[in-house]
């Protein structure tokens, strides 16, 4: 195979090019570099909205009509306004997202462990796993609509616990499946050994399973944080006054109320994007680590 392709490739392409015959390796390098150039241009176009957000956020409000291509006249006025008016909402979002992460992990980690032990037959556990997958398919508006009367009865509307519990729902099924996939690779022998040493079930979970699963837990936490941070639907539907307003809801009101102060809106957007950017940089490492599962030796 190699001989035919090697000889035929230069022969067939030689008449097409006026350039002197190149070695196949050189040529494929050129082609790969072209790919890189094309890829960079494509991604630049694709990410243009993100650039535009940052660019607009750095231009003051005086040039109301048209945003310049580059922030030549750098102005932090947008950020100043954003922080003055949105800092409280950013903190609200932070509190809710951190709370949701705690709820999420507290529920997902034990469940993942219970569902990961392949040497114990658990009738019904597969049904539960299928149910978890189905929950991902239920439209959020159905949940919000069905949950609101319950929240109203329990006094959870306009409250931090209400939004924390609801936002954990964005992450719990995902986190259970993610952590379980990792925990299934923990050898049973490790757990059996601890059992023989006299460790109780809870002890095994806390001092053996959880430390080994650290990478999976961090990954799950990061995603749970991001899901809760991005939540808009529950913020919109499970609040009726302005006592608890996460940043997404506040931005939505901002868009409706005064669309003229674009710089401030874009600065708010940029500030609210920080967790996503952070995740992109940091979590990739953890995801890779979770997949290779190097923790178990």
């Amino acid at each position: 195979m190699t001989s035919t392709s090697l000889t035929s490739a230069p022969l067939s392409s030689a008449p097409l090019r006026s350039a002197p015959l190149k070695s196949p390796r050189r040529k494929s390098n050129v082609r790969m570099n072209l790919r890189t150039v094309f890829g960079v241009v494509m991604i630049a176009v694709f990410l243009f909205p993100v650039y535009w957000m940052i660019n607009s956020s750095l231009q003051g409000n005086e040039n109301l009509l048209e945003t310049q291509w580059f922030p030549f006249e750098l102005s932090l006025e947008g950020y100043q306004q954003a922080i003055e008016s949105q800092l409280g909402n950013l903190i609200t979002s932070l509190v809710i997202a951190v709370g949701a992460v705690i709820v999420c992990l507290a529920i997902a980690a034990p469940a993942a462990y219970g569902l990961s032990r392949t040497n114990i037959r658990l009738p019904g556990s597969n049904t539960f796993l299928v149910l978890l997958l189905i929950t991902q398919m239920v439209p959020g508006i159905v949940i919000a609509n069905g949950l609101f009367p319950l929240y109203n009865d329990l006094g959870l509307v306009n409250s931090y616990p209400g939004l924390i519990l609801a936002n954990a729902s964005h992450g719990i099924p995902f986190c259970i499946l993610l952590i379980r996939a990792f925990m299934m690779n923990i050898p049973s022998s490790l757990i059996e050994a601890a059992r023989i040493d006299g460790a109780g079930e809870l002890r095994i979970f806390v001092s053996i399973v959880l430390p080994i699963s650290r990478n999976a837990l961090v990954t799950a936490a990061v995603f749970a944080f991001l899901f809760a941070w991005s939540d808009f639907l529950f913020a919109l539907t499970l609040t009726t006054d302005s006592s608890v307003v996460p940043i997404t809801l506040s931005m939505y009101q901002f868009i409706g109320a005064h669309t003229q102060s674009w710089a401030a809106l874009m600065a708010t957007a940029a500030l609210a994007s920080i967790p996503a950017a952070f995740l992109l940089v940091v979590a990739q490492r953890y995801i890779a680590a979770g997949v290779t599962g190097g923790a178990v030796k």
Binding site: F46, L226, S230, F232, T248, I255, T259, S273, A276
Partner: peptide, 15 residues
Amino acid sequence: PWLLPLIISAAVWRR
């Protein structure tokens, strides 16, 4: 774009 909160993407596109 997938990691950004949808509201942010929507706000930027609205701009």
